[in-house]
């Protein structure tokens, strides 16, 4: 195959932090621009080319009726669709609305709710279209992003590790905050990728990379119970940035009255 890859970055409901991780690639951003055509990236450029795209990176969750249509169009225009971040991959922190009364939220914040286009639930892209790869994290990790970019530039399927962050944490030699510090660390059930930051900063992991492939959220909940957390504490622990991810959703459900 010849020609430079055409890359697009699209945004839905989000904080823009995963797009910022592209902009924070610093000198590597210029390298990327020299090796691929950045065809559509509204936050970075005023030039917005229409599809088709070789790879679309999608940030943000699906949360309005307009989003439902736009994600279909993006899927149709993209050979590969890769979600970036907790919002696109699991619904994001704003998926906390999924357990609440959405209409009451709208009315509480806006005087004229009829002007507001907002769905009752904030959902991941994969609930609406086929997704080719998911880059987890809130925000995504730049090393993982660079590996995925290298994979797509080499035209091979992106490889994203699914093991627990605990393994990375042990390899780095951090003191286990769960065992030694008696704090409710989510590391055992959380996916690797951040560099085991929270234990390095002497605190508990809060699961911002989402569930690892084989975690036992139920068992970890029992451990938290033994440590003195209330049922409500355990629910809040799992129902957080990736709370709508199935493994965390099920793990929290166990402790809900």
């Amino acid at each position: 195959m010849t020609g430079r890859l055409r890359i697009a970055v699209h945004k839905f409901a989000s904080c823009d932090g995963c797009q910022i991780q592209f902009l924070n690639l610093e000198q590597d951003l210029l390298t990327l621009a020299s090796r691929a055509e950045i065809a559509h990236f509204a936050e970075a450029s005023s030039v917005m080319q229409p599809g088709p795209y070789d790879v679309s990176f999608v940030e943000g969750s699906i949360s309005t009726s307009a989003d439902l249509q736009r994600i279909q169009e993006i899927r149709a225009a993209s050979r590969l669709l890769i979600t970036i971040g907790a919002c696109a991959t699991a619904g994001g922190l704003q998926a906390l609305r999924n357990w609440k009364n959405h209409d009451e939220f709208v009315r509480a914040i806006y005087a004229r709710s009829e002007y507001i286009d907002s769905l009752a639930r904030s959902t991941p892209v994969s609930e609406h279209v086929k997704v080719d790869a998911e880059l987890w994290g809130c925000p995504i990790d730049q090393q993982q992003l660079k590996r995925v970019l290298s994979d797509v530039l080499a035209r091979i399927a992106p490889r994203i590790p699914g093991e627990s962050v605990c393994l990375e944490c042990k390899r780095a030699g951090h003191v286990c905050v769960l065992v030694a510090g008696d704090v409710p660390c989510l590391g055992p059930v959380t996916r690797t990728g951040c560099g085991a930051l929270c234990p390095r900063y002497e605190r508990d992991c809060y699961g911002c990379f989402g569930p690892q492939e084989d975690g036992n959220t139920r068992a970890l909940g029992r451990r938290f119970r033994e440590m003195g957390l209330s049922d409500a504490d355990i629910v809040r622990r799992l129902r957080f940035i990736n709370g709508w991810a199935p493994a965390f959703r099920a793990g929290a459900q166990v402790w809900e009255k």
Partner: peptide, 11 residues
């Protein structure tokens, strides 16, 4: 501004 509302204050 059509950025979707995320309702932070509520949750």
């Amino acid at each position: 501004i059509f950025e979707p509302p995320r309702f932070f204050e509520k949750f």
